[in-house]
Design a protein around this nucleic acid. Structure first.
Lengths: 145, 145
DNA sequence: ATCATATAGTTGCAATGGCATCCTATTTGC
DNA sequence: GCAAATAGGATGCCATTGCAACTATATGAT
């Protein structure tokens, strides 16, 4: 199990974490495609979709679709920005606000699960190394565009 | 950028590597959903879909669809296993065989790209830590089922 | 020998996400 | 001031993937 390429590690790890998170969010009507948006909106109430897209590092279409779902489920509200009517300002609803502690607990559990039998310094190291790889990937994607 | 959860790192890193690989495979008619199967088949000619599914750690439906695409593109061939006619034996075609060195080079380049500015020991460490996280994720998914 | 069960693979459906395109609102250049 | 360019967001289309239900073959228990 040692000649596995990064590509495969990342792929399998991603798909497995999706399965775990989908499982835990199911009872709230949510899926793996929305939870990170809730966290980001909780941190920056009134943020618009462009900024969200940048923070989440995805396509603006993905953001639009995730927010549509969150809105229809009643977790967020979109207000037209009267200063620039192209924008929406995104806020958590009361329901969304109330869900955040639960969500944070779920994510904390996921992090704990993934880092079972790892020391604190290994966990820090992991984040640093993932961060480096991510920066390299970002540079490469930007180079392609 | 330090309170990012593992969930987000893994998600972004996965999506970015997909973008890079899709870009590089485009001219061969392939996408990110097939290349790991080619590598696995090259390593184990005659393997069946169940074994492939286990190695790739995905759903058997994903395997079936990836192989359909590879077959229709002429990269692989499926032979009914006459000893047990439920099985297929999967082989690379000449075209598939001929493509393997190119594919290996592409993956080597991806690994190099991702590990830019990382020392050899950091790269080893990364694989070990990804491996631990993956094992933890696998255990959790098995627990859920 | 037959009928139930298990197994390999396929298909339909839904979720996620990227790319391209479109629409509307705003900004810029003349 | 107005046409052209730009920007935020929405929508359509496609690829990847998992789950569930299905088909066909094989095995096993009575």
């Amino acid at each position: 199990m040692n000649d596995i390429s990064f590509g495969k590690y990342i792929s399998v790890l991603y798909r497995y974490t999706q399965i775990i998170i989908n499982h835990q969010l199911k009872e709230y009507g949510l899926g793996s495609g929305q939870y990170l948006f809730l966290i980001a909106i909780a941190k920056s109430p009134g943020i618009n979709q462009k900024e969200l897209t940048a923070q989440m590092m995805n396509d603006k279409a993905t953001t639009a679709k995730a927010l549509s779902k969150l809105e229809s489920l009643g977790y967020i509200e979109r207000q037209k920005d009267e200063a620039d009517r192209r924008n929406y300002k995104i806020f958590l609803s009361d329901k969304g606000e109330a869900f955040i502690p639960t969500l944070r607990a779920i994510l904390q559990t996921l992090t704990s699960t993934l880092s079972t039998e790892m020391t604190a310094s290994e966990i820090d190291q992991s984040k640093e190394l993932l961060d480096k790889m991510l920066e390299n990937a970002i540079k490469e994607v930007n180079r392609l565009k």
